[in-house]
Amino acid sequence: MELETRGLSVTLSRKEIVKQASIRVQEKEFVGLLGPNGSGKTTLLKSIYRVLKPSGGVVLLDGREMNTIPYRETAKRMGVVSQFNNLNFDFTVEDMVLMGRTPHKNAFDRDTKEDYRIAEEALRRVEMLDFRERSFLTLSGGEKQRIILARALAQQVEMLILDEPINHLDIKYQIQIMDVVKSLGVGVLAALHDLNLTLMYCTYVYVLKNGQIVAHGPTEEVIDAQLIREIYDVDCSVERHPVSGKLHVTFFSRL
């Protein structure tokens, strides 16, 4: 599945948050979306996963205009792990993950053995299987985030949209979650803050500043000390790591 935006603009409260952004995620490609706080990453993603209406431009799913596709259809193909906001109602962890099956179900369908197997597999992948009977609201932030990912996995989609999916996680689970997502072999569009993780996992990046795409290309070609200084206003050096063989960013304090 291929996801594309053409000249996408989003206006919130008369302010243009995203300006003419054109991005593209090809089949099975892991694409990163970088940018400082307030650069419009979340807004761009929200208009892609249909929570916000763009004020201009189009979102295309395999060349079809997104807003002509029923919600249920997009939910079968595109899963979302967004920044977590609080819930007013409680569910068990297992029920929460089973809800990922919703787009595949008709009104009177019961949860089948297959659904339970899919949910169980998703929980195992995020190492939360022992928590299945627990109440969701009693989990820690990081645990909740892993459950939400498990729910998206249970959706069995071809494309995942991730909005800072690892911001509540310790380093072990950051790597675990990114590994899980990478190993799925699906298309990914992920807003990330950690440049080193971006270099580890993303093959292509878009860099957003003040709502505009200011740079894009293969990750290793785009990320360098000069760009990081321009975008984030910090000093750093970018060098190839002797063990991993990947580019690595080291930041310098201003003191």
């Binding site: 249909r50 997009t74 939910a75 979302v80 109602f89 569910f91 809800m99 919703t102």
Partner: peptide, 15 residues
């Protein structure tokens, strides 16, 4: 799905 909030409902395919 409505109980999960607006965003989750939409991304799970509920109009």
């Amino acid at each position: 799905t409505l109980l999960l909030g607006d965003e989750a409902a939409i991304t799970l395919g509920v109009d």
